[in-house]
Every structure is written in C-alpha cells, then in structure tokens.
Design a protein around this nucleic acid. Structure first.
Lengths: 155, 155
DNA sequence: ATTGAAAGAGTCTCAGT
DNA sequence: ACTGAGACTCTTTCAAT
C-alpha cells in the first residue's frame, strides 16, 4: 500500500526540522544540512508524495484568543461495540479536537478546547449527555500545559 | 502584558485558515477572503508580532516512520508540591511530547510517542520509575486515533 | 542522486488613496 | 487601513555531472 521508500539520514534530518519549525527556506535548510536547496526541494517533494509529510499548520496561542480551558475527558461506554456511533456523534461537537480509542479504564479519550468553564459545562452537560451509548465521563481540566512538542525523529 | 490588539473578523478568518492549513499563498488567501495579498501580509505580520501566531510545523504521519504507539499516562504524585521537579525530570524523556497539570484523579497527564510496545515498556519501567515523587501511573494505549484537528476559531 | 543556474512565483515594501 | 506596483527572495525546473 505505502510506496516503499528508502528513507535515509538526510530525509530524517529534514523531517526532524520540518516537525519542529517549518519556517526555514530550502536554501537555509540546505546550508544547515550541507546540501543544495534543490536537493532539499527534491527530498521534501518525495516525502510529501509518500504521505509522510502532510501539511503545515501554524501554532496559535489559544489563550490570547480567549480559549482558556483545555480539558481531557475519559469516556466510559455502555458497550465497546458502540464506539463507532459514539465517535461519529462526538466529532460533530466542534470543541472536541482529539479522540482516541484506548485500552484501560476508559474506552474513549477525548480532548476539548473551550473559551471558559461555562462553555465546557455546556458541552459536558448538554451535548455529551445527549449522545446514546455513553455511560459516564470523567473530566480533567488542565491547569497548566508544561510541555507540547513534536516527537524527536532520530532513526 | 499582552499588547492590546483589535482582532477583527478578517484576523479571525486568517487565523482560522492558518490553523487548519498554512499552505496557501497570500494571494490565494486574499482571493478567498476578498482582500489583496498585501493586506493578508500586513495582518499576518501583526498577528505574529503579537505572538498570537507562533510558527508553522509540518504534520507528519508517524506510523509511516515506525512510530506506532501513542499512549496517555496518568501520573499520581506523592505530594502535589512535587509537580515542578517531576515535570522537569519528565521533560528530559524525549518520548514524552506533552504534559499537563490537571484537576481530578491524576496530578499530571502526559502523552508519549514510541516506536513499539518494547520502547514504551522501557520508558514506563526504567525511566519513569527513576523519577522521585511519582507514586504510581496508569497507562492508556491508543488503539486508534479517530480525530486530531485544530479548534475552530469563530469569534 | 546532486548541483548550479535560469525561469517562474511568492513575499515584502512603499507611495498613493 | 487597503491597494497595486516594483524590488527582492524563494521555489521549481532542467541540463550537466
């Protein structure tokens, strides 16, 4: 399925750079990695075509935009077979930004971003309670985000 | 502290675009929002200077690079006053990509990205156990990531 | 596969409105 | 505060190695 590519050391160095800061020009990155801008260009195109690199997004300071509340929600399902329908319903809530099907206590682990506690309460109390198949939820409000980085690509 | 800026509707539309896809040129974005490329440029510069927009990162398909395991770790501390020192030690583990100080059951909520279960086991068993102040941990391995998007900026 | 150079496209600045 | 045009920089292509 995935085109079989030889990812060499240079590719990994480029990925490592792009994950952490996609702001450099090809010329600058080439200088850093001791190759020409053209080579960087060819490699990045290869990585994009292979779907390894997907697209760039700006990081935004959500607090400065008034989005003050990040919370994590552990969701217990009545039956785990309900995962697909519950997941589909959860996706419709715009405040929910991430969802993982997990082992352990909870069936679904979700992350939610809100403007304030009032909005969080509305989502938890009104939106989530409407969804069939959710047994109960546990909420962990983030008081401080002390780390948010990309994984370090080494080999 | 934060420079007091009038963030108008156009700014929000630009932010909304950049959060979800930073790949468009100023000219293309201008066409979409019915202003000139120069205006987009000025606005983005203003948002960057204010620290609202911070930098772009490429999204990477970690699975294709062999990073197959995402897990969430709930960490119980012996005393919550130990948060700072434990957080400092956790940051030194490169596999840990995110850390939040939270209300509820756990004191610290962390996210970890590994190549395989063996590496996860190593981090949990060797690295985490070395850190003073951690009482115990609970691990939730992600079997499927069904959603990972940016928050929708509306007003 | 990498390079260097030329062509094309994008960013950035600024005078005018 | 927005625009359009010019200067500048970056991306993209390509012939040569």
């Amino acid at each position: 399925m995935t085109p079989d590519l030889n990812i060499d050391k240079l590719d990994l160095q480029i990925i490592q750079q792009l994950i952490h800061d996609a702001g450099l020009s090809y010329a600058e990155m080439g200088k850093k990695l001791f190759v020409s801008a053209g080579t960087i260009h060819v490699r990045i195109k290869k990585l994009q075509d292979a779907g390894i690199i997907q697209g760039q997004r700006f990081q935004v300071d959500l607090k400065k935009l008034g989005y003050d509340v990040i919370a994590f929600i552990g969701i217990y399902l009545e039956k785990s077979s309900l995962y697909d329908t519950v997941a589909r319903d959860l996706k419709k809530i715009p405040e929910i930004v991430r969802m993982n099907y997990t082992t352990g206590n909870y069936s679904i682990f979700a992350e939610i971003v809100c403007k304030d506690i009032g909005q969080l309460r509305t989502v938890l109390h009104d939106e989530l309670q409407k969804i069939k198949g959710i047994e109960r939820t546990e909420t962990f409000i983030s008081l401080e985000e002390s780390l948010n980085r990309s994984v370090s690509i080494t080999s």
